[in-house]
């Protein structure tokens, strides 16, 4: 098992290196001085030309491209992501500030959509051909067809503006700290964000379950005289779960992407919100670092998914 995990991590490294190299190349090509990406621009603006040149030398910015990339990479690995062009804030500070909100939102949505999607999909498969099944199929289709942000807008109009049950946006009002103060804020964004994912997981869980139920070991289980619930859940669902988890892994980038727009709709103070601001303001260092980070997050998530599938499915461990 450990060798499996290590092997999976080793596969990721060349990918991350390639992408970081591309990101660095893009950083060099886009406007904005390389020095300013490394030191606080406020400080940089007060420097004389001579001092500036000295700094360039000190940071190795006159060295060949590939060396500069090496320096940048080691900086990044030590947590020095450079500075945002707007306000000169260190990007690492922005990450520390904004990341918890995004993680909170994505994890709640992920958990919700996985659980609900699996339950509905499995139920639908077991009741194949019933009215419940066909209505769930249609609802699922509608779920993947409505733009998430539009759904968010409608929810906002109904639950926040007209009914006044839930707050319009934000994550937490100043002075309110308990978990119960947070819950009303996260309900809408998390539900809206998980809509598409739930529908996707549901559809996939249904077909995966249907597929599992046609396998011969189901007949074997039935021939042993086991009760239906055990056949369906222990034998059917357990086997159907592996492809569903793999799909959730594939969909994670979508969830992360979806949170970019949803954070905007609900003024959720997360990384996605920051990203939109950076794209609008052509804050290239910040844009690049968030993009790089998102790739890192996706690759890590896929690693976790791989380990998870290996844990629940003995077949994967061997291959």
């Amino acid at each position: 098992m450990l060798t499996y995990v290590i092997r999976r991590i080793l596969i990721l490294i060349p990918m991350l290196l390639t992408i970081s190299f591309l990101v660095y190349t893009a950083l060099e090509l886009t406007p904005g001085d390389a020095v300013s990406a490394l030191i606080n621009p406020e400080v940089a603006s007060r420097l004389s030309d001579a001092q500036f040149a000295e700094l360039r030398e000190a940071y190795g910015l006159n060295k060949p491209f590939i060396v500069r990339y090496g320096i940048w990479l080691s900086n990044v690995m030590q947590g020095n992501f450079g500075h945002s062009l707007a306000g000169g804030v260190p990007i690492s500070t922005i990450f520390l500030d904004r990341l918890p909100a995004t993680l909170e939102l994505s994890l709640v949505a992920l958990l919700f959509s996985t659980v609900l999607g699996c339950i509905l999909g499995t139920y639908s498969a077991l009741k194949r051909g019933s009215i419940t099944d066909s209505s769930l199929t249609v609802v699922g289709m509608i779920g993947v067809s409505i733009p998430e942000f539009f759904f968010g807008l409608v929810a906002l109009l109904i639950f926040a503006l007209n009914l006044g049950w839930l707050p319009v946006g934000g994550r937490l009002l100043p002075g309110y700290e308990t978990i119960w103060d947070r819950v009303p804020h996260i309900i809408m964004p998390a539900m809206v964000l998980s809509l598409m994912m739930t529908a996707g997981v549901m559809r996939y869980a249904r077909s995966s379950m249907l597929d599992a139920l046609t396998r011969e070991f189901i007949t074997t289980a039935r021939s042993k005289g086991l009760p239906e619930w055990r056949i369906n859940l222990l034998h059917g669902f357990r086997v159907a779960l592996t492809p569903v988890i793999v799909l959730i892994g594939f969909r994670l980038p979508l969830l992360i992407g979806g949170s970019v727009i949803i954070e905007q709709v609900f003024q959720w103070p997360g990384i996605g919100n920051e990203f939109i601001g950076a794209v609008r303001g052509s804050d290239y260092p910040l844009v690049m670092m968030i993009a790089l980070f998102s790739v890192f997050a996706v690759l890590m998530a896929s690693l976790i998914i791989d380990v998870l599938t290996a844990l629940i499915d003995p077949r994967v461990r061997l291959s």
Binding site: E216, F217, T220, A221, S223, K224, G225, L226, H235, V239
Partner: peptide
């Protein structure tokens, strides 16, 4: 799939299948 039938299956009448590769659940 009633109770009586389940009590017979596996206990009174048992069955083995053509392909043991697919007839066993791979995850148990």
């Amino acid at each position: 799939d009633g109770k009586e039938m389940r009590a017979i299956r596996g206990s009174e009448i048992a069955m083995i299948f053509q392909d043991p590769m697919t007839a066993l659940n791979p995850v148990y």
